[in-house]
Computed example of a mutant assay.
Amino acid sequence: MSAATDLAEAIADAMAAVPGVRPAPTLTDTSWLPKPIRGSAVDIGPGLIEIRVVATELPLRPLADRLTEAVAPILADTAWADTTVRVIVTDVESTALDDVT
């Protein structure tokens, strides 16, 4: 595994601990994969890390802030410490809208 792949997996682990979000599916058929790729919702490039999520609750800004805060310690001692983290909400679960009036 590469450092970027390991980092994507660590970010996926952090995402799992943040209430209100789940990874956005990027592959519709993963049966051909030898093992699940939890970090597939994370793209790591020079100067930018994009994390795609599905929101399971609202409002969105606090969710994005919580996820960014959860990822910050993971990036702290890496080559990506000063990289911009962009949270992309690809979908909102319908149950998140239940409390919206």
Rank of each mutant, 00 (worst) to 15 (best):
L63P: 14
D29R: 08
T28H: 14
V54W: 09
W80L: 03
I44C: 05
R61T: 08
V18K: 08
I88K: 13
T78E: 09
A55D: 04
T101Y: 11
A24E: 14
R22M: 06
A76T: 00
D65Y: 10
L67I: 04
R61S: 07
A96K: 09
E50D: 09
R52F: 11
S94C: 05
E9V: 07
M15T: 15
M1L: 09
A64E: 11
I74T: 14
G47C: 02
A41C: 14
V53E: 03
L75E: 06
V71F: 03
W32Q: 14
P19M: 06
P62Q: 02
P62I: 06
S31Y: 04
V42N: 01
L27M: 11
V42P: 09
D43C: 01
V71I: 09
L75Q: 00
A16K: 06
S2E: 01
D29I: 00
S94T: 03
E93A: 15
P73H: 02
V42C: 03
D98Y: 13
A12I: 01
S94A: 12
V85R: 01
T95V: 11
L97R: 08
E50W: 02
E69P: 04
A72F: 12
M15C: 12
T78L: 09
A70S: 13
A81S: 13
A72Y: 14
L67K: 03
A12M: 04
D29P: 04
P19Q: 09
P25M: 11
D13R: 14
D29H: 05
P62E: 05
R86C: 11
P59L: 02
A41S: 13
A55R: 07
P62F: 10
A12L: 07
A81I: 04
I37S: 08
I74S: 05
T84F: 13
L60F: 08
S31I: 01
A81L: 03
P62G: 08
R38C: 08
A3Q: 15
G45M: 03
A14T: 04
A4E: 15
A8W: 07
T26M: 15
P36E: 06
A55F: 01
